[in-house]
């Protein structure tokens, strides 16, 4: 079982559309994991059935047992996050502000503050229309994405892949360069970078590739909307060559990506021309490269 992670550094490059296309091409050989939990959109293309769902807890939240509170105010004094307010001599915790540091609970002389796990969202195991399985999640309002949720989604997907003897876990990675993307990359066999030739595209590609390098994971790259700016495209190609990143394909700027999405389809189902060929060819190359690893 090999883990293939698709990442992009910046949003809007077509990462999720391509991941879903690979999922369709891979069919029954791949278990899909949507780790882009901040903007989890892949379900719109793969139509999961939300067969199994479970709550997801992350971090801690302080809670004051009112009956035992002696109203000494020590908790409020030590809290650096303005999370404790007092109204009518009643101390309460504002969950939006509480960082879960646990300081208040440690110093409460009446031992009436407890830390409880914070409900952060839900995660799901679904059957998808490719005949395979997808693991995905949804964060609650204002919940912080964390490496933990990404790790949870990945772990479940890996477990299923091992049990059902699937060859690949295909991961739609998290955006940015923080903890969630680190967790997306941790343990991966291969990375596919998706970028676009714009001033911010190359900038963000370089930042996220620094992380890939740290993990020493082999990488390949797809340049989407490649014909929109030939100068930037050449700069990206040069960067790929310098870093030894396999250049999989240049995809043209094409509204069929959006048209496919509007139909709830992936590009390889909607398009019957060049785009389909380029994406199919990229997936074949990825499989070959991953099998070499």
């Amino acid at each position: 079982m090999k883990e293939i992670v698709i990442i992009s550094g910046k949003g809007g490059t077509g990462k999720t559309s391509l991941t879903a296309a690979f999922a369709v091409l891979g069919g029954n050989d791949v278990v899909v994991a949507d780790c882009d939990v901040d903007a989890a959109d892949m379900h719109l293309l793969l139509q999961p059935d939300f067969n199994y769902s479970d709550d997801f807890y992350s971090g801690e939240l302080a809670y004051i047992e009112q009956a035992d509170c002696i109203r000494c105010g020590k908790c409020k004094d030590v809290c650096r996050f303005d999370a404790i307010s007092v109204k009518l001599n009643r101390f309460t915790i504002d969950p939006m502000n509480c960082e879960g540091c646990g300081y208040c609970a440690r110093i409460c002389p009446a031992h009436c503050i407890r830390n409880k796990s914070r409900l952060a969202g839900k995660w799901y195991i679904s059957n998808i229309r490719t005949g395979s399985i997808m693991v995905h999640a949804r964060l609650g309002i204002g919940a912080d994405n964390s490496g933990k949720l990404v790790a949870k989604v990945k772990d479940e997907a890996k477990g299923i892949a091992i049990e059902e003897q699937k060859e690949f876990v295909l991961i739609d990675g998290s955006p940015g360069i923080g903890c969630p993307v680190v967790s997306s990359l941790s343990g991966a066999s291969f990375v596919v970078l998706v970028t676009e030739p714009s001033v911010s595209g190359l900038h963000d590609l370089k930042r996220v590739y620094e992380l890939v390098k740290k993990f020493k994971i082999r990488a390949a790259c797809i340049i989407n909307k490649a014909d929109i700016n030939l100068v930037k495209c050449a700069e990206i190609e040069q960067f790929l060559a310098e870093e030894g990143i396999v250049h999989l394909a240049d995809l043209p700027y094409d509204e069929n990506f959006t048209k496919a999405m509007t139909q709830g389809q992936t590009i390889v189902e909607y398009d019957d021309g060049l785009l389909k060929d380029l994406v199919t060819d990229s997936w074949e190359k990825v499989k070959r490269l991953v099998r070499e690893e």
Partner: peptide
Amino acid sequence: EPTPFGLHDLSLAVETIRA
């Protein structure tokens, strides 16, 4: 954007703003 992805993410953002 007037796409399914755009709409989905917009509705999440609206929920947050309404909070």
